[in-house]
């Protein structure tokens, strides 16, 4: 067993877990944060994407013990004070979700790509950056539209703030 402590959405979480515990299990079963989903369980679908020390990773392909000492952000940590994150708001506005299963991973991947690349992002870039996320409902079109809109809005906000 391993004593694992990490910061999740700004709060310290400590659990004693089996060494083989995946980060996604730690988050869902240990921290009770079930917004992060397990889709394929074979490291392909991206439903489990969270940010570890500011970088998007597949939490089904990382041991909780590997993330000990790290800062983890999940979908539950994006909104601030009841106000949706711009990417969350854009997914609602542009109908970027249907069944919703892939949505947490899509949104965490989208926030990561906007953080890395800035905005506004073009369609080709967004589609290439979504290679690690699979959706079986929407055919991606509205997801791409939502990310494009959010990246433009966030770039505008940044410019306005400067």
């Amino acid at each position: 067993m391993a004593d694992v402590t990490m910061t999740v959405n700004g709060k310290t979480v400590s659990k004693t877990v089996e060494d083989r515990t995946l980060l996604v299990q730690f988050l869902r079963e240990g921290a009770g944060l079930t917004g992060t989903h397990v889709g394929c369980d074979t490291s392909q679908c991206g439903a489990c994407v969270v940010h570890v020390d500011g970088k998007a990773v597949k939490s089904c392909t990382m041991l909780a013990a590997q993330a000990a000492g790290s800062e983890v952000t999940t979908i539950e940590g994006l909104a601030s004070g009841g106000e949706l994150h711009p990417v969350q708001a854009a997914f609602r506005e542009h109908h970027g979700l249907q069944c919703g299963f892939c949505t947490p991973g899509m949104i965490m991947a989208a926030v990561d790509m906007i953080n890395r690349l800035g905005g506004p992002l073009d369609e080709a870039t967004i589609r290439a950056e979504l290679e690690g996320n699979i959706c079986r409902c929407t055919g991606y079109h509205n997801i791409v539209k939502a990310i494009a809109a959010a990246s433009a809005e966030m770039a505008g906000v940044r410019t306005a703030a400067e």
Partner: peptide, 9 residues
């Protein structure tokens, strides 16, 4: 290589 999330690890 792989996808952005894989490339981070």
């Amino acid at each position: 290589i792989g996808d952005p999330h894989v490339r981070h690890r």
